[in-house]
Design a binder for these strands. Structure first.
Length: 568
RNA sequence: UGGGGCGUGGCCAAGCGGUAAGGCACGGGUCUUUGGAAUCCGCAUGCGUAGGUUCGAAUCCUACCGCCCCAGCCA
């Protein structure tokens, strides 16, 4: 029950709080119990992943339980399609709710009874004010509100009206049930909040059974109490709602004692923001609707579906979540942190392959035409059990255009006229001649190789600093490569109020390379697997790309490139 | 003179009265047939500001400054 080992070292304030709760016996022998409560009205993003993994991680570390509960109290916005995608995303992330998949709508009957008891206890009333009137009566941030003329209705009348609201007698929006709290409270949430509204709408689960639906502030705390949630975690903007959360739970404990499993408590933490992206559902929706991306699962999107399609792993996301930590302070995490987590995982798990993204042909003039030699290369450097593969080498090869410079600066270690470089796993070559077209563009390099420098049995004694990757022209497979980059050009795309964030979209966020030569082993790659294209980046063989016979690789993240940094 | 929350290095984030953890980023060294990886070193006399209490303050007190959230019959 102590779960000491799993939680020690985790120093965030929530773990600390739970440890204290346990020590003080506040949980009354109940297991730590958390939940993730998504509304099925859209796609999950990496900010949700933080919440999911936090909640799930707590349950796992403290040997408790984790529920998945859909907050489906607004039939107008919610759809089964989103339920399905959310379940799929959470499962992919690795959070396990076992058999505890719930829906707020599962509890509509009890909630109705709870509302009735609130009425009987004089703590709720039916209000006939329309929406504008309610707003006007609420007062402002600096002025207290005014009590509704319907506030003093008798319990009998309220019960009758509420029942008639339920039975469908009234139009949508014509009446609401309100909690009777304090119209003068400095906290607007306490000014007789609406807890039930009339909505003649078909619900994705309860169909036409109901035409009144509970509001979040009433529904959520009660659902937590019903499920025995011990720690109800939510984001910081709900801090103002906590007094109302407690009001509802306290009332439930008093009026529905047979139903309440635990007097749950709410704890807020800061939501995740990241550089070079946007996180609000509204803005993500605009990116999709305005066609800036190819949908919610576009690999440039911070959605779970997008990250998955990009090739990022759940492990990397979990590692990221742990490193970012949890606090109450507003923060924007550097994208570099996520990229680090991705690289760190893929470094030891992604087999190496060679592909030349921006090819230039090099002819080895002293290599016999038609001769092929096989070069043995490691699949995973430093991990012998991953084995080796044979890569064919021939007279004509491709090398990366930027691995050659006609007039290299002093620190350039790669190929240049009269200079030598090692072809990874093969021989050392020297550039003898540069061939150009009439416009002065380099079309081909003429090189010679040194037969004594064969990889693994080099007898030349040469010390060659530069090593570049290559692909044999004759044996090359052809692939398509999607070079994904940051969706925005600015760390904070929503930085300037006068400039619409879509103006900061990176026009180079996707560069497609067709006909990219790659070593033949690429043909054996299994869709959905990840590779490092040597010296370039990690790639994901897109299993969802339309199949036209050419494999499509998505760039997950580039390798660190100290040469590129040096150039700046 | 509405209520609430938050301010620790470029970015996250520990710390809870005993003299600033860790990670990312950054800079430098070693090593390297990926300018990758690995490895070593460096990186806040300072914790929003100003006072105060104390032998001792990021931690306690006071005042001030800055940023964020709240006036949906959304969640």
């Amino acid at each position: 029950m102590t779960a000491k080992k799993e939680t020690e070292g985790k120093t965030n304030f929530i773990y600390t709080m739970i440890r204290e709760d346990l020590e003080k016996g506040l949980l009354e022998d109940r297991p730590v119990h958390t939940r993730f409560p998504p509304e099925p009205n859209g796609y999950l993003h990496i900010g949700h992943a933080k919440a999911i993994l936090l909640n799930y991680g707590i349950a796992r570390d403290f040997k408790g339980n984790f529920n998945l509960r859909f907050d489906d109290t607004n039939p107008i916005k919610e759809e089964q399609e989103f339920v399905d995608s959310i379940i799929n995303d959470i499962r992919w992330l690795g959070a396990d709710w076992e058999d505890r998949l719930f829906f707020s709508s599962d509890y509509f009957d009890v909630k109705y009874r709870f509302a009735q008891r609130l009425i009987e206890a004089g703590r709720a009333y039916v209000c006939d004010l329309n929406q504008e009137e309610i707003r006007a009566y609420r007062g402002t941030l600096t002025e207290p509100g005014t009590e509704s003329p319907y506030r003093t209705r008798s319990a009998e009348e309220n019960l009758d009206l509420f029942e008639r609201m339920r039975s469908g007698e009234f139009e949508s929006g014509s009446r609401v049930l309100r909690a009777k709290i304090d119209m003068a409270s400095g906290n607007l949430n306490m000014r007789d909040p609406v807890i039930y509204r009339i909505l003649h709408a078909v619900h994705h689960r309860t169909g036409g059974k109901w035409c009144i639906y509970p509001m979040y502030d009433f529904d959520h705390p009660f659902s937590d109490a019903l499920e025995g949630i011990t720690h109800s975690l939510c984001s910081i903007e709900y801090t103002d709602h906590r007094p109302l959360y407690d009001w509802v739970v306290d009332s439930a404990v008093e009026l529905m004692p047979e139903e309440v499993r635990f007097r749950s408590r709410q704890t807020e933490f800061a939501r995740l923001n990241m550089t070079y992206t946007v996180m609000s559902k509204r803005k993500l929706r605009r990116l999709v609707d305005e066609g800036h991306v190819e949908g919610w699962a576009d690999p440039r999107m911070p959605t779970i579906a997008g990250l998955r399609r990009r090739g990022i792993t759940p492990q990397a996301i979990a590692d990221f979540q742990e490193r970012v930590g949890v606090s109450r302070a507003d923060s924007t995490v550097d994208l570099a942190m996520l990229e680090h987590c991705i690289r760190q995982e893929l470094e030891t798990t992604a087999p190496r392959l060679m592909a030349v993204l921006d090819p230039i042909k090099a002819v080895i003039t002293n290599w016999p035409a038609g001769k092929t030699e096989m070069c043995e290369m490691e699949n995973l450097p430093g991990n012998e059990s991953a084995g080796t593969r044979q890569v064919p080498f021939g007279r004509e090869i491709y090398i990366e255009r930027d691995d050659f410079m006609e007039e290299p600066p002093k620190k350039f270690f790669r190929l240049a006229p009269g200079r030598e470089v090692r072809l990874k796993g093969a021989y050392v070559i020297c550039c003898e001649e540069v061939i150009k077209d009439e416009d002065g563009n380099i079309t081909e390099l003429r090189c010679t190789y040194d037969p004594q420098t064969r990889s693994g049995s080099d007898t030349s004694g040469k010390k060659i600093k530069g090593v570049i990757h290559w692909v044999s022209h004759e044996h090359a497979a052809r692939i398509t490569v999607n070079l994904y980059d940051n969706l925005f050009t600015m760390e904070n795309p929503e930085g300037e109020a006068e400039v619409d964030f879509t103006r900061n979209i990176n026009p180079q966020s996707l560069v497609v390379c067709e006909d990219v030569p790659a070593e033949p082993a690429v043909a054996d790659a299994v869709p959905g697997s990840r590779f490092q294209f040597l010296r370039k980046a990690y790639f994901y063989l897109d299993p969802e790309a339309p199949d036209n016979g050419t494999p499509v690789f998505n760039r997950i993240v580039q390798l660190r490139d100290s040469w590129a940094r040096m150039k700046k």
